[in-house]
Design a protein around this nucleic acid. Structure first.
Lengths: 105, 105
DNA sequence: GGATAAGTTTGATCAACGTCAAACTTGTTG
DNA sequence: CAACAAGTTTGACGTTGATCAAACTTATCC
């Protein structure tokens, strides 16, 4: 497990990939929970309606899109929201989606 | 052809549907062109890399998500961007995506 | 009215994607 | 070291969605 996972540079961020990452409700839920808590969380710390294998897949998609950063602490995989990087690449996008998420309509 | 198509009310706008609509590059291109021109355009007036049947499908998805409004003028189907409605339902979302679209990275 | 133009509908195809179970890897802890 | 806990990887499956060709509908124009 030990390998440090790949993260894209801000200059390599791609709108298409970010939107593809955020269109999935489970992944948007991950981002929302990460934002709401305001702190790093281990993969198992999220409330998700899918199995571990699927969760791993979703975390990978978010990481490769640049939305989260992942690092190991022992056997725990921690996740943090790359808010500043996202704001730099696509100003207002993350905020707008997080806000829209909260609105009933 | 004559029937007036269905458009959702602003109160029925749904984030999930809007994101699903905007995740497709062709549909995002339609929205971008509509925004850039600042005027209503007929379906055939867009520069799209797909056939007419597929284009019809994409316009339908955008309409049902609330992103565009469609109306007939003779045999022409005109399209207009529902910018104000979108801004009301999801402030900043459309702008952020349109802006992100323009950035090289 | 006949021809043409603009879109739509239907039916089919093909690729992507989310999902899970099962087996595996790695680290912690008694 | 043995057992357990946390994630990952692999392989398979089912659904969804984008796409097109062909036939159709509706309106305009000579």
């Amino acid at each position: 497990m030990g390998r440090t996972p790949q993260h894209p540079e801000v200059s390599d961020f791609d709108v298409q990939r970010v939107l593809e990452a955020l269109v999935d409700p489970v992944r948007r839920s991950i981002v929302t929970q990460l934002d709401a808590l305001g702190a790093d969380i281990k993969c198992g710390g999220f409330d998700l309606p899918v199995g571990k294998a699927t969760a791993t897949h979703h975390f990978g998609v978010l990481r490769e899109a640049g939305l989260i950063r992942q690092y190991y602490v022992g056997t725990l995989r921690m996740n943090s929201l790359r808010r500043a990087d996202l704001d730099q690449a696509f100003p207002g996008l993350l905020d707008a989606i997080l806000a829209a998420q909260k609105q009933p309509a």
